[in-house]
Nucleic acid binder design. Structure first.
Lengths: 138, 138
DNA sequence: CTGAATCCGGCCCGATACTG
DNA sequence: CAGTATCGGGCCGGATTCAG
């Protein structure tokens, strides 16, 4: 169950195979919307339009594509109810649920440190602009 | 220190501010190379060419850009030694080190489940192609 | 050795219109 | 309601070249 067996499995340079798989899967995880959708579904089964409403800023196209990818990776299930009007519900698979742990960890980290990052960014930008040639800052 | 205060901070829909910050920062985390670089630097200080060699597949441009972004976000430090030939060393900041936890969690998750995902993908693809019109598979 | 700058192809993604 | 199809702009990212 637990993510870590106690050993340090996080050794990027040692295992090339894992390393390549990481790139691949991380790009799915790191995908802007995937994490949010998984997090949403962590709260329970939802239908398409419900996800659309709760995930603001996402286009219909992106929601569809994201869900397709997640389905393909075995992280979510897609259930179509042959009614009219049609209803489609999405839910996390057991595998998908195991992703919630790491995702929440990341979420928490961001919650905690977003201020630090914002501050660092301002400091960095300020430092850059004073080093940069004062080319008509106007 | 700890990532979680004990409460469930991972509530995507509740806080819009955090939610937007998440998108922003996650796109950095989810950035293909950022995670790998941070993981590399988790092992200790490294210089530019060293990172380049150990991170296979990365172009010089991307390494530079990635490092710049990480520096701007206050996650890594950049130290230039005024020698000839020049030497530049990168290291994680304290803030950067706090990221290692969540990253390793994710890394471990991938290590554990990459097979499941690969399998799910094959199954999905197989299912798709039999539903699809057999248009000259040849 | 480290890094900046330029060029340029490819994809990502949003907007729109159309189907069942 | 849920989804596909198409078009088009924009940004990502690799290869190359030049500089300190």
């Amino acid at each position: 169950m637990a993510a870590s067996t106690g050993r340090q499995t996080a050794m990027p340079t040692s295992e090339h195979g894992t390393c390549l798989a990481m790139s691949d899967i991380l790009s799915r995880i790191g995908d802007k919307w995937s994490v949010m959708i998984v997090a949403q579904l962590g709260q329970g089964t939802m239908r398409f339009s419900e996800l659309r409403r709760q995930t603001d800023g996402i286009s219909q196209r992106m929601l569809t594509l994201t869900l397709r990818n997640l389905e393909r990776d075995g992280l979510v299930t897609r259930t179509v109810y042959p009614e009219v009007p049609p209803r489609v519900e999405y839910a996390l698979t057991p595998l998908g649920k195991t992703l919630l742990g790491p995702i929440y960890a990341l979420w928490d980290w961001v919650s905690e440190h977003q201020d630090d990052i914002a501050e660092a960014r301002m400091a960095y930008d300020a430092g850059q602009q004073e080093e940069a040639p004062p080319r008509k800052i106007a």
